[in-house]
Deep mutational scan, measured.
Amino acid sequence: MQIFVKTLTGKTITLEVEPSDTIENVKAKIQDKEGIPPDQQRLIFAGKQLEDGRTLSDYNIQKDSTLHLVLR
């Protein structure tokens, strides 16, 4: 499925993911596309910070959802 990741600069990254993918996995995909190390990434969805060990389906993230990427 496709999800979107919006950065603070207003750029939107499109990712191909599975509901069973972990947040860690998603961060690795963002690193592949953007070169941002996962340890600098914070992903936010519906006002919640997403934890590495959980999956997209744990957070009820569905296709065409938009996550927000904050760098630390």
Rank of each mutant, 00 (worst) to 15 (best):
E16D: 07
T14K: 08
E51M: 09
F45P: 00
F4W: 07
K33S: 03
K6I: 04
L71N: 08
D39A: 05
H68G: 08
Y59R: 01
P19D: 11
E24A: 04
Q62D: 04
P37G: 10
T55Y: 06
R42G: 11
T55W: 13
S65D: 12
T66I: 04
P37T: 06
S65R: 09
V26L: 15
V5M: 03
A46V: 14
I23G: 10
L71T: 14
T66V: 04
N25F: 09
N60K: 03
D39F: 05
Y59A: 13
E16V: 07
I44E: 03
L15E: 01
K27L: 13
G47D: 12
L56F: 05
P38N: 05
N25I: 08
T14Y: 10
L71S: 14
Y59I: 15
E24F: 07
K11T: 14
I44P: 00
P19L: 08
G35F: 07
I23W: 01
Q49H: 03
T55E: 03
P38S: 11
M1V: 08
E24I: 03
E24K: 13
Y59E: 13
I30N: 01
I23P: 15
Q2F: 09
E16L: 14
T9Q: 06
K33W: 05
R72D: 09
I23M: 08
L56N: 01
S20Y: 15
K33V: 14
T7N: 08
Q62L: 13
A28T: 13
K27W: 04
T7K: 03
Q62R: 09
Q31E: 14
T7D: 09
D64Q: 10
L43H: 01
Q62A: 05
D21K: 04
D32M: 04
L43K: 00
E34Y: 08
K48A: 09
E18A: 07
V70I: 09
V17Y: 14
Q2E: 11
V26W: 01
K29G: 11
L43D: 00
A46N: 15
I61D: 00
D39K: 07
L15A: 02
V26Q: 00
T66A: 15
G53Y: 06
N25A: 14
K11Q: 04
T66S: 05
K11H: 03
P37R: 06
Y59N: 14
K27F: 12
I13G: 02
Q40P: 03
E16I: 15
A28P: 01
H68A: 02
T12H: 12
A46I: 13
R42N: 11
K6M: 05
E24T: 05
D32S: 11
V26E: 00
P37L: 10
H68P: 01
P19M: 08
K11E: 08
I13Q: 09
Y59W: 02
T14R: 07
L50W: 01
Y59Q: 04
L69I: 04
T14G: 05
I23K: 01
K11L: 11
I44A: 03
N60R: 13
R72G: 07
G47Q: 07
D52Y: 14
N60F: 07
I13A: 07
L8A: 07
T9R: 11
D58K: 09
Q2L: 11
D21Y: 13
T66P: 02
G10T: 06
L56W: 01
E16M: 10
K11G: 05
P38Q: 14
D52P: 09
I13K: 02
A28W: 04
I30K: 00
E51L: 06
M1G: 09
K29Y: 12
E34R: 03
S65G: 05
T7L: 15
T12P: 06
L15T: 02
K29R: 13
T22N: 08
Q40N: 13
Q62T: 12
E18I: 06
I36L: 06
N25H: 07
K27D: 00
Q40H: 14
N60P: 10
G35E: 11
L69W: 02
R54P: 09
K27Y: 14
Q41L: 07
R72Q: 06
S57Q: 08
Q2S: 13
T55S: 10
P19A: 06
K33I: 11
D52I: 07
S20D: 14
P37S: 13
K48V: 13
F4R: 07
V26N: 00
G35W: 13
L67Y: 01
I61S: 01
L50R: 00
P38W: 13
K48F: 04
M1Y: 06
T12W: 06
L56A: 14
V26I: 11
A46Q: 06
Q31W: 07
E34L: 15
S57P: 06
A28N: 11
I23Q: 14
Q41D: 01
K6G: 12
Q31L: 09
I36A: 04
T22W: 07
I13F: 14
E34W: 07
G10K: 09
D64F: 05
D58L: 15
R54L: 03
F4D: 10
S20R: 02
L71W: 08
Q31D: 03
L67V: 09
G10F: 06
T7E: 04
D32G: 10
P19N: 08
N25Q: 12
D32H: 12
L8M: 15
V17S: 10
V5E: 00
E34I: 08
Q40I: 04
E34Q: 08
Q62Y: 09
I13E: 02
P38D: 12
K6T: 15
I61V: 04
T14V: 14
L69M: 09
Q49F: 03
P19V: 11
S57F: 06
I30H: 00
Q49D: 09
L56M: 06
D32N: 13
P19Q: 14
V5K: 00
I30R: 00
M1E: 12
V5D: 00
D21P: 00
K11M: 10
I3Y: 01
K27S: 02
E16F: 14
A28E: 15
E51P: 02
A46Y: 13
M1S: 06
